[in-house]
Amino acid sequence: MKLNFMLIDDNNIDLFINQKIIENSKILSNIRAFTSANSAVKYLKGLEENTGINNINIPDVIFLDINMPEMSGFKFIREFNKLKTEKMKSIKIYMLSSSTYFKDVQKVKQEETCIGYIVKPLTKETIHNVLSEFNITQTA
């Protein structure tokens, strides 16, 4: 099984790190990176509208940065909820932030759509925990 990852972060370096960590975990993956929440929403809308297209492209996991200009992670979730259909239902969203501020953590926990909060940087260990949700054993 191939896992589809969607990475959303305005910082190119963080995107690079996340991508590398996923690649290093040696699972079969397909990674799409977006530097703004806006473009990610557009992409998801496109998938939604093209009903004919197979579901292969629909992401399984979204790593979402909180602090981004124009559209923040929380705003993205609001937009995402608007287009949440059957197809999108299974998507697991993790929010990523360098903040350990308790109010941020609390806020993320209140978001039903979001299933986890990851303190940056993404590491081998955290990606392992995420993957265990999918019962995927790493081919390490």
């Binding site: 910082n11 370096i13 963080d14 790190i17 996340n18 590398k20 960590i21 290093n24 602090n67 932030s97 360098s98 903040s99 350990t100 501020y101 303190v119 940056k120 940087p121 993404l122 590491t123 081998k124």
Partner: peptide
Amino acid sequence: YRSAHDLRAPFSSAQGLVNL
């Protein structure tokens, strides 16, 4: 709050890069 957060960000990135 924002300063603390934004100051953390480059350190987190650096840590991630060091890990890699």
